[in-house]
Nucleic acid binder design. Structure first.
Length: 623
RNA sequence: GCGCUUGUAGCUCAAUUGGAUAGAGCAACGGACUUCGGAUCCGUAGGCUGAGGGUUCGAAUCCUUCCAGGCGCGCCA
């Protein structure tokens, strides 16, 4: 709706700029929502932007704007042709819009132009959405090719809470970008090429030989849980025994030099570890699959070349034996330079080398023009440095800038805070270990089951199990996604599984209630195509809220903040609940009214289901 | 020490990136239906936005000085 109005208003504002002798910039089309709905549905704040350059008072400019908008106003046009062809509403405004868009336009000090949209116009837009819900989400302009780097599990360890946020935030980002029509390339940057895996190999090899000799199934005998035990034991031994540590390091070097036997076992261990990882992804409804795996090992043959490419720019210097780049913008106040270490003193490579190699691969080979990294906030400095380095040596410039309408590849770090326990410290078990993700998820499902059993005990057992899964997993994901990712948050089953407030169960309940209406009425949703008639205030508010969906999705795509969509869906659910309370659907006073309200129900259900799907949360039809 | 980040109602969080009287949900109090799922809806109360100063038509938001927490600062990732 807001986007639609912007297109409508833009030529008018441009014309006014021309009259006032001010050059138009997009920022002047400042269309917002007033804090109080009584003030209007939208507020045009252009007058305040124009006042100074036009050397007029904001109020004078605002009145001028209101005057120019008069042709769109109902009070100055008497008719409302609801049967007008909708195509006339597309594109830029023409002087004779077939229907009045506004029912009231008010100028308020110091220069707000408050716009009240006509019911007729809201209804037109709803009809449009009803007929083509997919188009509403599509982005304007040329689609991006986006690489999203997320989840990035370490294959020597089981997934724990530390992996939760990157995995589910990243998955929302890919779903949202894809829904808008961008080409999205998921990259699971596995930690599969460092010392941990060498330590696991060292101790796992004899066990593997033994199991093979006795013909046992490795998948059963060496699950990730067992591999992690081996890793922990190896860490302990290496810490205590320098000879063992040296041996682990030797194995790492040999592996990285391509020792065939080690490589074969490395592949086996990776596969074994990923079995469990995919079990969790599956539980979480995360869209990552093996084809998205591109771990550190993938870049192993590009590292030397990466370093020499940086060296050729003349920026690489040796400091304490290590290959470093010093960037101007990373200096302490005393002038002490901060290095980015590209090559270790022993000739080996570190994470910066892997990330630089990955940046080059993603730009040159995958042809991405937007790179997104979803990792926790502690890595902010690392990415700021790596991005600045890539920028300074010209890797982010695109030679095909004209054809893709993008001069520079955008490198974006999406940082997020930690998951805390009730004690406000990073969430750990009583014994101080990381909380295993599988146990956390299972507990949430079990708690959800207890609730479903209490509220809707008569349902068949397997259906209750399915609902408990959707609610339990949805609650964990929503609790995480629904707040600004910058902040740490305290993990609490009680809060996230609460049935009211801004929680997944509340949204899912609203959805289930809509489904219940159709079920009870014996009506199929697909058969509903009536034009909604917005008479009751709750109907109008719901209609307007429905049209805000694309706007919230766009904001998530731009800002990479899923909580914006959560907030929207919560407001939509609340708007529906008010409507549900005040506007009977199945026992409406007339058939027309019933059809109209059913159309609102269908639109709300579709939007809720689609929105929650973008968040990776399921919507059971009963709960 | 330097840097990043956070500080908003008793609690958990918003605030469309500089807009109007700072909004929700818990918790508290008070209301509502012999109609579709009360897992609901409506209302009341609750605030010097950590503190001070500055910038302008206008500041939770920007600049600045403090205070408090979290995190990060050369060869782990």
């Amino acid at each position: 709706m807001r986007n639609h109005l912007s297109h409508l208003l833009k030529p008018i504002i441009e014309a006014i700029c021309g009259e006032l002798g001010v050059s138009f910039v997009p920022g002047m089309l400042d269309l917002q929502r007033p804090p109080d709905p009584n003030l209007g549905d939208f507020a045009l704040n252009t007058a305040m932007r124009l006042a100074k350059p036009a050397k007029k008072s904001p109020l004078v400019v605002a009145n001028l704007i209101a005057e120019k908008l008069a042709p769109l106003n109902e009070s100055t046009r008497k008719t409302c042709k609801t049967d007008a062809p909708l195509s006339h509403l597309d594109g830029f405004a023409v002087p004779d819009i077939p229907t009045p868009v506004f029912k009231k336009i008010e100028v308020v000090a110091p220069g707000f132009v408050n716009l009240f949209v006509s019911e007729c116009e809201i209804e037109n837009q709803l009809v449009k959405t009803l007929s083509d819900p997919v188009a509403a989400l599509c982005r304007e302009g040329r689609p991006d090719t986006v690489v999203v780097d997320y989840s990035s599990v370490n294959i020597a360890k089981q997934m724990h809470v530390g992996h939760l946020r990157t995995t589910i935030i990243g998955d929302v980002i890919v779903r949202v970008l894809e829904a808008r029509g961008d080409k999205v390339i998921r990259q699971n940057h596995l930690g599969d090429w460092g010392l941990p895996i060498a330590m696991v190999l060292m101790h796992a090899q004899p066990i593997m030989r033994e199991l093979e000799a006795s013909g046992k199934d490795l998948v059963k005998e060496l699950p990730l849980e067992r591999l992690e035990e081996i890793y922990r034991e190896a860490t302990r031994i290496c810490a205590a025994d320098s000879a063992a540590a040296a041996e682990a390091h030797r194995i790492l070097v040999e592996l990285q030099n391509g020792n065939a036997g080690l490589l074969a076992d490395w592949r086996t261990i990776t596969r074994l570890a990923m079995v469990e990882v995919y079990r969790i992804y599956n539980m979480l409804d995360v869209t990552l699959t093996p084809e998205h795996e591109r771990g550190e090992s993938f870049y192993r043959d590009m590292l030397a070349d990466t370093v020499s490419a940086i060296d050729k720019t003349g920026k690489l210097v040796t400091s304490d034996g290590a290959g470093c780049v010093f960037l101007e913008q990373f200096r302490t106040k005393e002038g002490n330079p901060l290095p980015v270490i590209i090559q270790k003193a022993d000739g080996g490579y570190n994470y910066a080398t892997f990330d630089m190699a990955a940046i080059r691969f993603r730009i040159e080979t995958l042809r991405a023009n937007r790179l997104i990294y979803v990792t926790d906030a502690r890595q902010a400095l690392h990415f700021a440095q790596v991005f600045a380095l890539a920028d300074s040596i010209g890797w982010t410039r695109r030679d095909d800038a004209v054809s893709i309408n993008c001069e520079k590849v955008s490198l974006e770090h999406v940082p997020f805070g930690s998951v805390l326990g009730e004690d406000n410290k990073p969430l750990k078990t009583r014994t101080g270990e990381n909380v295993k993700l599988s146990e956390l998820l299972q507990e949430s499902i079990d708690r959800a089951f207890a609730v479903v059993n209490e509220k809707n005990g008569a349902l068949p057992e397997d259906q209750k199990r399915a609902i408990a899964h959707d609610v339990g997993i949805g609650a964990i994901k929503y609790a995480d996604l629904s707040q600004n990712r910058n902040n740490d948050y305290v993990f609490s089953f009680d809060r996230m599984l609460a049935l009211n407030g801004n929680t997944a169960p509340y949204l899912q309940y609203a959805h289930a209630r809509i489904c219940s209406i159709f079920r009870k009425g014996g009506i199929s949703e697909e058969s509903i195509n009536a034009r909604p008639m917005l008479v009751h205030p709750a109907e109008r508010a719901l209609g307007l809220k429905l049209l805000q969906f694309p706007e919230s999705v766009t904001m998530v795509a731009v800002e990479l903040r899923p909580h914006i969509l959560c907030n929207y869906l919560y407001e939509l659910s609340a708007a529906f609940s008010s409507f549900y309370d005040g506007c009977p659907v199945l026992v409406a006073t007339s058939e027309d009214e019933k059809q109209s309200r059913l159309a609102l129900c269908r639109l709300t259900r579709d939007t809720l289901a689609r929105g929650l799907d973008l968040l990776g949360i399921r919507t059971p039809r009963e709960m």
